[in-house]
């Protein structure tokens, strides 16, 4: 890899808003090299030997936590998981105190998932170890955004000029916010659609085109990103029923046909098959959902490497 004068060493990765296009490109490029390592017979390299990473998850998540855990282990770091369900308020210990406890254990990086928007930024202000946001409330999930960009770029060769349709519950989705921010920054054209009560106010200010009807957003899209719908939104009166959601907003074969014939179908998982996405398209030719999972590990390896080593010693592993 060419020497670059940008460094992400010791940078907290809280969202994509605070990463420049150059920094995002560096991460995506490094992820490509990491993917090569992943595809070796012996995946483990000693690059992060002696570094310790804590996965501090205040919300259950098998997928993201496992992905980070493997990413750290493939690079030789020690990885420990702390999963605590329920908010720290319920638990009785404040977030600050939990973080200070973890910091006292001399960890180098904290990968944090929390149900409150802004929790990762709070953590970054409280403790010294690098904070990698693995999802904070409805705010951001930067590694998901990066792995989606990596997946699109891998298949399409570019991000600039692509039309990406994001479909579903934007209001409560950190994935949607992160992808809108990252993709528009990288020059893609983002269109969104979903039930109007789940489209946040003044969303267009984030540089996207908002559609009332799913069909209009899908028209000619290069990428269709389907979001998970939480059934508890229905109980809050934000949409009428699962049945109606599937009928009006669900992505099925007929709707996907409105996008370009070679459009990619994405979903951050876990899927509600038959609700926001039909099985025929989820497992169809256009689906890159499994690629997203694999690329997630590569992107997280890249990120851990860049924030902990600053891009040094890449020659050793490349």
């Amino acid at each position: 890899m060419a020497k670059s004068n940008i460094s992400l060493k010791n940078r907290d990765i809280l969202d994509l808003d605070t990463l420049s296009t150059e920094e995002i490109n560096l991460i995506l490029k490094t992820a490509g090299e990491m993917k090569n390592i992943m595809n070796r017979d012996i995946k483990k390299v000693p690059t992060l030997r002696g570094k310790s990473i804590i996965n501090l998850f205040f919300e259950p998540s098998t997928r993201t936590r496992t992905s980070f855990e493997l990413a750290g282990k493939y690079l030789g770091a020690d990885v420990v998981n702390i999963t605590t369900s329920g908010s720290s308020v319920v638990k009785g210990e404040s977030l600050r105190d939990t973080l200070l406890t973890v910091e006292s254990m001399r960890v180098d990086a904290i990968v944090m998932r929390h149900e409150a928007s802004g929790a990762a930024e709070f953590a970054a202000k409280v403790v010294k170890p690098v904070i990698i946001n693995a999802g904070d409330g409805a705010h951001a999930h930067p590694t998901q955004g990066l792995l989606d960009m990596f997946t699109i770029q891998e298949r399409k060769g570019r991000l600039t000029g692509l039309k990406v349709a994001i479909i579903g519950d934007i209001l409560y989705s950190r994935v949607a916010r992160t992808n809108i921010c990252g993709l528009t920054k990288m020059g893609a054209e983002v269109h969104v659609a979903g039930p109007a009560p789940l489209i946040p106010r003044e969303l267009a200010a984030m540089g996207v085109t908002v559609h009332q009807r799913v069909e209009d957003a899908l028209e000619g899209a290069d990428v269709v990103d389907v979001l998970r719908i939480q059934l508890e939104r229905q109980k809050k009166g934000l949409f009428p029923s699962a049945r109606e959601y599937a009928r009006i907003f669900g992505i099925n074969k007929a709707r996907l046909a409105l996008a370009k014939p070679d459009a990619l179908l994405m979903h951050p998982g876990p899927m509600n098959r038959g609700l926001e996405i039909s099985p025929e398209v989820a497992y169809g030719d256009q689906s890159v959902i499994c690629d997203e999972v694999q690329n997630g590990v590569a992107v997280r390896m890249a990120l851990l490497f860049l924030v902990l080593m600053g891009g040094k010693n890449i020659e050793v592993i490349a």
């Binding site: 928007s117 802004g118 409330g137 916010r177 946040p200 106010r201 200010a205």
Partner: peptide
């Protein structure tokens, strides 16, 4: 406040 900033920050807005 519900508006462009709450949308960006992912905080629930009070309209």
């Amino acid at each position: 406040h519900e508006g462009a900033v709450s949308t960006r920050l992912g905080l629930v807005g009070n309209p």
